[in-house]
Design a protein around this nucleic acid. Structure first.
Lengths: 242, 242
DNA sequence: AACTTCGGTTGGTCATACCACATACCTATT
DNA sequence: AATAGGTATGTGGTATGACCAACCGAAGTT
């Protein structure tokens, strides 16, 4: 039999894919709003006339895309499909090759530098005070002898997030969130470099001062220096192993 | 029973999740490179001592994240991890709020401006010539009367991608790919604004000239002006509706 | 030589059973 | 009556085993 007798409309989509687009459509049309609970898998399978397997695979896909959240024993719930939820998932998917770490820092220098500038220019009084307090607390905590690395790492994350938040650009926060998550594995090690902790605190102090003074240019510059300093530590660390 | 008697290591991960991170680790360590073929599902299930179901759900997740591509009758193959693929799949359901669009453009100004600068400084001769040729072609195509909007929109995407690619920072490419995907829907409309097409071509020409001349500062500035010009068109368009 | 056929590999779907977690309700002990 | 404990039920998670559908390549046919 020759080629041309094959069915014309192939309908290439698999069943689970069709379920995915169907549910996405419902969300787009507003018939499924954030917070809504999807019918149980078994029920959904019956309604759509497919096996539970297919339904599960569809839901698994939607979950990986961040459009729904699965809660064992409760059900499947619709998530808000905003830029954030999507980009946040990106961190999971991002795998950093060693040569990409350098490029990531290039981006950080650009984005966080600008973020610090915006923070200095736009932060409310509360935000500025909060940032300042963060640094003070870290400085104190740092003087205790039994200080653990996790605490500092944690502070570092909070500090950077606070600055980004004060920049009043949510998209920036989302992007940085994704990138930092990807960098996490690498960064945990960084703080162990001798002197790194103290240097970071000093750097943060400088940045905070600039933001308090609402000096965008200075904040930007301080952030740049800080990131470059951290970068050198990480690159050096990573060069030793492998 | 008091809190402290709970098991210390909860190991919350489900089996499929564990398989996902296991495979991701292999990719991170370079033991699975793009193009590599994963063992068949049945085999994988046996190796890992789990059911085929779990393996399939794991692969489904990896696929949704864009880390692998599934080819029926062939097998599962490792893909290069790019941020765009994730967002790409969410596509229709993504809704950009107006304020997010503004913030997105703020980020674009920062990132693409820097990207243009890097492109001017780092592009190879071939890359520079390619960018230049792109603009020439678009200019010609633009003079035809029966020119369709899609063609120009397409050129615009290709041009911006080419500049980013010439910046020699892959991470930047991934981030921008994701962001632009999110902006797509909005942008398709922009080109319909009277005069927008011609203005874009002129802008691109200016950027290309600066890159050809390896003038980072000029390229950066030209890109900034271009994006700001596009932004105004989009904001104006979007303000009219809703 | 060109085409067809067929068997094996691999992902896709189905049906069923059972496990693990969460909640609400009910029971029995105090 | 108050509370600890169990139990029924609803929900997602996993395991089997069977079969379907796309693909490839080798063997067979014209």
């Amino acid at each position: 039999m020759s080629e041309k007798f094959k069915p014309v409309v192939t309908e290439n989509k698999s069943r689970s894919e069709r379920i995915v687009s169907q549910i996405k459509s419902l969300m787009f049309e507003g018939k499924l709003k954030p917070g809504d609970k999807l019918p149980p898998e078994r029920e959904l399978a019956e309604i759509m006339n497919v096996s539970r397997t297919s339904v599960r695979e569809a839901i698994k896909t939607l979950s990986a895309m961040g459009l729904v959240v699965i809660r064992k024993g409760h059900g499947v719930f619709v998530e808000e499909a905003n830029l954030g939820s999507v980009i946040n998932k990106v961190g999971d998917a991002l795998i950093l090759k060693k040569e990409e770490i350098e490029q990531l820092f290039e981006i950080r220098k650009v984005l966080e530098t600008q973020g610090a500038r915006w923070a200095a220019e736009r932060a409310t009084k509360e935000e500025r005070l909060y940032i300042d307090r963060l640094v003070s607390e870290a400085k104190e905590a740092c003087q205790q002898s039994d200080i653990r690395v996790e605490v500092i790492t944690n502070h570092d994350t909070i500090f950077h997030n606070a600055v980004i938040a004060a920049s009043h650009n949510n998209v920036l926060g989302m992007v940085m969130g994704g990138l930092m998550e990807a960098l996490m594995k690498v960064r945990a090690k960084t703080m162990k470099v001798p002197g790194r902790v103290n240097q970071s605190i000093i750097d943060h102090e400088e940045i905070a001062r600039a933001i308090m003074a609402r000096d965008g240019k200075k904040a930007s510059r301080a952030m740049y220096d800080h990131i470059e300093s951290v970068e050198k530590s990480i690159i050096r660390e990573n060069a030793t192993r492998e």
